[in-house]
């Protein structure tokens, strides 16, 4: 073994390892460390042990306690309502698109994919106008009397609508590719056995695309926990903070104009991270077991 055997691979994988250490490893470790400190982002963090966690989780008088649980509740609400729709709607579309001898499939796919390419802030400007009380489509065309942005449950509904409108493209393409890869023989022999389209969907299509389903479910859920842009742009967290998600509190505490409370914000981030981690692992475990 000469040195060359190690040096050359290092030239190939080394640059990325440096990037990984600087932009993923160090910030992750430091983020956990900072959650045990008092830190204003400028000076050195001061170790305070579990104080931040105690405040967030047990001090019922503290605003951070109510912010954390309100934010977590709203984030969970968003996850519970958005994720099933972000899986089922693209799946139905993909199944429809893979129907045999259907024409214009690439046109349909393009139309449905385009919203995903529109930056969320541009989309929010358009959708806010659509749901504007005086000027919008929703009230003028459908005679709705609702003030969408500032009344519940409408505030949540518009956040979900823009999320689904912008979010189905990626999953749709993954499912299409998956369904496309299923052997045609399976469907033909099922047809000979007299299976209808619904039966074929549940007995052949779903089991065959098991891996894409698990993958998209885990990724979509983890993404939904990081929700931030839609409530910020559509409702600004209102009415009465009922759509303020945890990411908005974390950003405000760490980066707002006053003194930064980055230590406490880090503790909230770690707690959110743990929730994401546990739920992802749980999903992966359950789906892998049921499907096996």
């Amino acid at each position: 073994m000469n040195n060359n055997n190690f040096l050359k691979p290092l030239l190939f994988v080394g640059p990325h390892i440096i990037l990984f250490i600087v932009f993923i490893l160090i910030p992750s470790v430091y983020g956990i460390y900072a959650s045990f400190t008092n830190w204003n982002l400028i000076g050195d963090p001061v170790w305070v042990g579990l104080d931040n966690y105690k405040t967030i989780l047990t001090d019922t008088d503290s605003t951070f306690y109510s912010q954390f649980f309100n934010g977590l509740k709203n984030t969970l609400l968003f996850v519970v309502f958005s994720v099933p729709l972000l899986i089922i709607i693209p799946l139905l579309i993909a199944v429809a698109l893979e129907h045999k001898d259907l024409k214009f499939t690439s046109l349909f796919q393009t139309l449905l994919y385009i919203p995903g390419l529109i930056s969320i802030s541009a989309a929010a400007l358009v959708w806010s106008l659509i749901f504007n009380k005086q000027l919008g489509v929703a009230n003028n065309l459908f005679g709705s009397e609702a003030v969408w942005q500032t009344t519940q449950p409408y505030a949540w509904i518009i956040i979900l609508i823009i999320t689904i409108w912008a979010g189905i493209g990626g999953n749709m393409i993954i499912y299409r590719a998956g369904i496309n890869g299923v052997s045609k023989d399976l469907y033909e022999s099922a047809e000979i056995d007299g299976a209808g389209p619904v039966r074929k969907f549940f007995s052949i299509t779903l089991p065959s695309i098991r891996f894409p389903l698990i993958y998209t479910m885990v990724m979509t859920t983890a993404g939904a926990f990081n929700v931030f842009a839609q409530p910020l742009m559509m409702t600004d967290g209102g009415p009465r903070q009922s759509t303020t998600v945890l990411m908005m509190y974390i950003r405000d505490l760490a980066f707002s104009h006053g003194e930064s409370i980055a230590g406490l914000a880090s503790a909230m981030a770690v707690l959110l991270g743990l929730v994401i981690l546990v739920i992802s692992a749980f999903q992966y475990y359950v789906m892998n077991r049921n499907a096996a």
Binding site: F6, P9, I24, Y30, A34, A254, G273, I276
Partner: peptide
């Protein structure tokens, strides 16, 4: 030596939710 071990270690670390590294990333 250790090629696949290194790869899967990095992959496992990268699954850690990135909300945690947001604030320190800004500092960096």
């Amino acid at each position: 030596k250790g090629r696949d071990f290194l790869f899967f270690t990095l992959l496992a670390i990268s699954f850690f939710p990135n909300v945690v590294n947001l604030i320190p990333s800004y500092k960096i």
